[in-house]
Design a protein around this nucleic acid. Structure first.
Lengths: 343, 343
DNA sequence: GCCAAAACTGGGAGCGCTCACGGTCGTTCA
DNA sequence: TGAACGACCGTGAGCGCTCCCAGTTTTGGC
């Protein structure tokens, strides 16, 4: 007898029940089961109950692919994370944003999917995935400009809502942004109102909306300003510290500094304290974000609050309207000055 | 003239091209286009090129739902985050795990989807989503026992691989776990080898695999042990600090402590230092995880490394084999002692 | 008691794709 | 020369659902 290789018998895992199985079990037609599945209109109580019993008995779960094929809807949207090295995770605000979106979408029975794309290769696959009909729309946090995913999704007609102005696509993509410029203006005006006259700033990277807009707000509030009072940071604590050192060298007489993020502000405070400056007596410090760190600095940080719950709610509202066929819009959410002890 | 409400004209956004459009444009049949889409076997060079040109011209993107409907595959798997308050995000190791899985799946052209489920409501929707055929399988980080999603997914026959022993489902769900017990044993034996005689431990929560197994390893290495040398923590820094204080009260003569996580170990070190103990002179401290914090403590922490890249690779391998019809298996990944200055 | 409207139900068509099958070539080899 | 084969291609069937239309039954108003 030969050693015959039996063609793999791969036990098919017991075919999933379909709508037909349920219909048969309930003694009704496919159509009636479908009606029960979709809200139960025009279904008699008897039929409704028979179907429900049959579904329980057969362990039926609707096949989303079949459904989506005809409805052209997947009842899910993607939250795109496409930064190479994703620091977003570490940002507590990001968590708030994410959960806010999840909750808001849940009200419409839509599942939120987080998708990562670090490498170029990833980004390609993700592009295919997203435009292949898997999701009804996408949310994304736009940080640095030039995210290659945006034009692709836009070209395919996928509804996209960005959090923060999507540099280069402001006209074509919908977005929700905090009123960075106004927040910065408020802060600087507040600093002036407390008698500060040499107000410096540490900006975010100038290829990010927050970097640009907050600087613009600073300039707006100050009229013209001394270039020596401006230093650029990168939204990290260390970056803020380094920028503050540069500022102190360039303009030793500064008496206030508006820093474009709380984390950088924390770094700046360290630099100031190491330089022997008292906060706020010698130098007032203002931050931006009202994140966790604002409460842990010594002294607590005066900052600008952006309401993330509000932002996430608006993002979802916008996305749903896009999915419904509306045209892209921009929503600017107000910011609010939060005065603590650092200024 | 009456004010007639015109039934919403909703401009249909220019029907997406289908495989038939491509076939027509290329002058071939549906079947040939499909073959090109799926690897291009049995397709002449001329046809191949005509189809590719037609796809470019029409801007064709395959409809994943239609494809999935017949293949019963979605080419995507979910990574489930179902902790209510997700601290995982803050854990740098989690990032490594996530990216590792993404990369490993990418090799098979499978997209990884992160899904959140904080509330019960969320969990229900997620259950529906996952079992509705949207994904081919799921990866999950099992922390506390009793995750209600596990039995549901298992019942529906969805392939599931857990990271860490899924308490209560060890037999039915596949999992990959670090060799917690052996790691703990190694650490304690190392502490003994350096002459320590009163070795205490701070455990993780006892409804987590890490909590249980690391304690078991500690006990194994020590034979019997004094209950006064055991305190329970919750994987937080503050929890570690509190547990250390309790230990110092219960057993002031302890000369070493094995802490079940680096973060707790950092807290424990704070408590020790506040109590005037020198590390490692008076008390040696050993951690677990080899996370970022192990390098930032003063002195640097001796700890147990678990290889997250390895774990993620194994998880993906296991999941793919499950999807292929293999039966669940458990993989235990070795752990390794990393000696620094704290012990 | 009659008729129209409302309530409910069944089933055909079709969403966009893959798969299996069978047909048509041109080649090869006895 | 012709049978056998491989390369290539087209087509029907069908995945599991929703949608819609054409019934059939029930209800209500006069």
């Amino acid at each position: 007898m030969q050693n015959v290789v039996v063609p793999e018998p791969r036990r098919r895992p017991a075919r999933r029940p379909t709508i037909n199985d349920v219909a048969a079990a309930a003694g009704v037609s496919r159509g009636t089961v479908s009606r029960v599945l979709n809200g139960g209109h025009d279904v008699s109580d008897a039929a409704q109950e028979a179907v429900e019993r049959a579904m329980r008995k057969t362990g039926y779960v609707v096949n989303q692919h079949a459904r989506s094929l005809v409805t052209q809807r997947s009842q899910s949207v993607a939250f795109i994370l496409s930064e190479p090295q994703d620091r977003l995770f570490e940002d507590p605000n990001f968590n708030v944003l994410l959960h806010g979106c999840t909750q808001a979408l849940a009200k419409h029975d839509i599942t939120l999917l987080l998708t990562l794309a670090s490498s170029l290769e990833d980004r390609k696959r993700l592009g295919r995935y997203l435009t292949g009909g898997h999701v009804d729309g996408a949310l994304l946090v736009s940080t640095h400009s030039g995210n290659p995913l945006i034009p692709e999704l836009l070209a395919r007609g996928l509804p996209v809502v960005a959090c923060g102005k999507p540099l280069g696509y402001e006209r074509r993509a919908a977005y929700v942004a905090a009123d960075d410029r106004d927040g910065a203006r408020q802060m600087v005006e507040y600093l002036r109102s407390t008698g500060r006259r040499r107000i410096a700033t540490i900006t975010g990277p100038l290829d990010t909306p927050g970097g640009i807009e907050r600087l613009a707000g600073y300039r707006e509030a100050l009229g013209e300003s001394d270039p020596a009072l401006i230093a650029h940071g990168d939204y990290t604590r260390a970056g803020g510290e380094a920028a503050m050192r540069r500022l102190l060298a360039q303009a030793p007489d500064l008496d206030a500094v508006f820093v474009a993020s709380d984390l950088m502000a924390a770094g700046a405070m360290t630099a100031l304290q190491l330089a022997g400056k008292r906060i706020p007596d010698d130098v007032a410090v203002g931050g931006f974000d009202d994140s966790q760190v604002a409460l842990t600095t010594q002294p607590p940080l005066t900052t600008v609050r952006q309401s993330y719950p509000r932002i996430s709610a608006e993002m979802v509202r916008l996305l749903l309207s896009l999915i419904d066929g509306e045209s892209p819009a921009a929503v600017i959410v107000p910011t609010e000055l939060v005065v603590r002890e650092s200024a």
